[in-house]
Design a protein around this nucleic acid. Structure first.
Lengths: 230, 230
DNA sequence: TACCTTCTTAGCGCAATCTTAACGCCAAAC
DNA sequence: GTTTGGCGTTAAGATTGCGCTAAGAAGGTA
């Protein structure tokens, strides 16, 4: 998901954050003091910085001030001091959020998500790419070879459902529920008709229609790669 | 400095925030329940929203979810419940920060400054140009070939909405919220009528009316270039 | 008051899309 | 070898969504 730099001198905290962040799908880079941290920030260009204020070689606030002279990376401060005045100085020096130790792990992750969401540019939309097929959830566009395939609303949402869980089988009931609502979970013939249309349009656009595969009696799946196990 | 909307049902809190915010140089707008708050958000377009989760007419999280369907305003949550799980849900529904009552006034102000600093992006240009069409958000003027096109307020704000997100599909609900407010999210026939008028005026001014394209069942989009597919 | 602009509401026709039904195919089960 | 259930395909109504027009309603101004 995102690359996160942690500057903290305590090995145990770094360990704990590593488990936490990688468990959430992020990549973690770490540094154990301010000078290495600033160097890593310049070299690695992470998406976000978690900064402990209690560093051995430099005051944490000073570190923050220096990096803000040239970097706009979002910064979440970790600190053992719960004094509100500390929070105010850190936030005014350019920090984006401030958590006091001990912190609640799910809350930390949620605050990271909030920061990353705010920072990722709005045109960096959720786009799913599978081979030459790309599905843009925000603009409701499906492209093959960068050529837009005109899909109807139902066709698009079927494809989007499959793409969201690419490679896995989605049951008839799941697809019907997601596209037509809970009242249609029995109408599996809808799927046969609309998948015919969808496959035809994808084939006309130059895509191997085998990418949408049927699992008899179960449902449908979108193949991730050309995986020629019959 | 900034215009801040406060949605809170307690008069005493609103009073206190008023003193606090205006003392810091901001302008405060307030609403005492969710429905008035959503209305004020659509009408006043504040720079930031402070939302209390304990509202009389609607669950605060529901209110947040609704406004996030069409607004990207930064939101700071105020809540009496310190449960971390509440924080996680609110942050994941689109909140940017979360403070529990009672809060420290200077910390609140600092967190507001941090949010506003992060959000006030210099890239919101007052003039948007797409081909021979230019839209001046400051003077509320639309020009084709440097010739002013006389638009009514609703027509202009529809066009401005599309232009702000040129190339992307804006859903019916998004447009209706942005132009008419949250009470009109179902009245999609408004869009048909006013887009007819808008397209006619643009066509009379010499612009290809195809620049405003309909995505059936979804919404409308402003085409970026002449993209003669189909 | 009268006039003018703008917005709201209703209704019509058309085209795109969806639903429904019917038919043939295939593979597994009997 | 026959039957049966699930699937793909096609085509015909039925429905929906859209563009458009026009007639009130509302609000502002002289």
């Amino acid at each position: 998901m995102s690359r996160i730099l942690v500057i903290d001198d305590e090995r145990s905290i770094r360990r704990m954050l590593q488990v936490l962040l990688e468990g959430a799908g992020h990549t973690m880079i770490s540094a154990e003091d301010a000078s290495h941290g600033l160097h890593a920030l310049a070299m690695e260009k992470p998406d976000l910085l978690i900064l402990d204020l209690g560093l051995p070689d430099m005051d944490g606030l000073e570190c923050l001030r220096r990096l803000r002279e040239w970097s706009t990376v979002p910064v979440l401060i970790l600190s053992a001091r719960p004094d509100p005045a500390d929070k105010v100085s850190a936030l005014d020096l350019g920090a984006d959020d401030y958590l006091t130790k001990p912190f609640d792990a799910p809350e930390l992750l949620a605050r990271l998500r909030a920061l990353l969401r705010r920072v990722t540019t709005p045109d960096e939309q959720p786009v799913i790419s599978i081979g030459i097929l790309t599905i843009d959830l925000a603009t409701h566009e499906a492209r093959v070879d960068n050529q837009t395939v005109p899909l109807t609303p139902i066709e698009f949402s079927l494809l989007a459902q499959l793409a969201r869980h690419a490679g896995r089988v989605l049951t008839h009931a799941h697809l019907l529920n997601a596209v037509w609502g809970p009242k249609a979970t029995e109408q599996s013939h809808y799927l046969r008709v609309h998948f015919t249309h969808l496959r035809r349009k994808l084939r006309d656009a130059g895509l191997d229609a085998e990418v949408i595969r049927n699992e008899p009696g179960i449902g449908y799946r979108l193949m991730l790669e050309d995986d020629p196990r019959t």
